[in-house]
């Protein structure tokens, strides 16, 4: 522990990142450039999110990490251990108990409170990137609010698939001004972007930080005749029976048998502990692996 500064980064770097975060909160949805540091993990493994977490963590915090909704994947476990080791903070898998939650690809099912911070890992922060390769041009488009191109992407979706087929990283407009990439969360999660907690987005490789302050208006882009729909698999969780949560689909044997289960493992476990049982589920047992 004494070998590292608290939360790995030096204090000057954390100050620099905090300034970027504050600027991001002051201009909701605006991508603030920051001097991303080399982290002891490869790009694409959450270097942006880790730096933001490092800058906001205090010794009193309780930290939770989820990857695709799960607390127990390699990525989630290694980041959680990283901060256990470098910041000696308390960790948890329970959404309600965490004060800082770092996430990749999901927003927890349970509503966040005003005293919680959600930190997103972002691969490509620029929502216009795939249509306009020039950074100079996309910055200008943001500055001048020229967002017609974003709808071209949705138009293409409908013309090719008959519906807006974009199912994750679905573009949103923040507080009526900036169009933002909410990171690759499923569009099912988009309505949850209007929340009480603070949302911070970090892109390490792209060196951008942006933020959505509490209770900010976040609207998913759509067409009048093809309104936005927060879709999920039309099924209930086979483990806990929940019908309101985002589901992962699993093929469980060689004959192609399928199973749907909550992607948010904490949510699913809590429900099973409370006695809910899904179609293929068994009653919760503390020692079950």
């Amino acid at each position: 522990m004494s070998d590292y500064n608290f939360a790995y980064l030096d204090e000057q770097t954390k100050r620099m990142i905090r300034r970027a975060i504050l600027k991001g909160l002051a201009i909701p949805g605006y991508q603030v450039p920051f001097a991303s540091r080399e982290m002891p993990m490869p790009y694409g493994w959450g270097t942006g999110g880790v730096q933001v977490s490092a800058a906001v963590l205090t010794p009193e915090d309780t930290f939770k990490v989820i990857d695709q909704g799960a607390d127990d994947t390699t990525n989630a476990v290694s980041i959680r251990r990283f901060f256990e080791k470098t910041a000696d903070v308390a960790v948890t898998e329970a959404t309600a108990e965490a004060s800082v939650i770092q996430t990749r690809h999901r927003i927890p099912e349970q509503d966040l409170r005003a005293d919680q911070i959600l930190v997103y890992q972002v691969p490509i922060p620029e929502p216009l990137r795939f249509l306009e390769p020039s950074e100079v041009e996309t910055r200008k488009m943001h500055a001048l609010e020229e967002y017609g191109l974003m709808h071209v992407k949705l138009y293409e979706d409908i013309s090719q698939h008959g519906a807006i087929a974009t199912s994750y990283a679905y573009p949103v407009k923040v507080e009526g001004r900036y169009v933002m990439d909410p990171s690759p969360i499923p569009k099912f999660d988009n309505p949850k972007l209007n929340m009480a907690g603070i949302q911070l987005f970090g892109a390490g490789r792209e060196q951008r930080i942006y933020a959505v302050p509490p209770y900010t208006d976040v609207v998913s882009l759509d067409f009048e005749d093809y309104p936005f729909e927060a879709s999920k698999a039309d099924h209930a969780c086979d483990l806990c029976g929940a019908t309101d949560s985002y589901l992962d689909e699993l093929i469980v044997d060689d004959s192609g048998k399928r199973m749907f289960m909550c992607s948010d493992t904490d949510y699913c476990c809590s429900r099973r502990k409370a006695g809910h049982i899904g179609a293929q589920g068994v009653p919760y047992a503390e020692d079950a692996a």
Binding site: G148, L149, H151, V152, Y155, F223, Y226
Partner: peptide, 8 residues
């Protein structure tokens, strides 16, 4: 769309 058309 650039001038605000939003009806597919």
């Amino acid at each position: 769309m650039a001038v605000g058309a939003r009806h597919y």
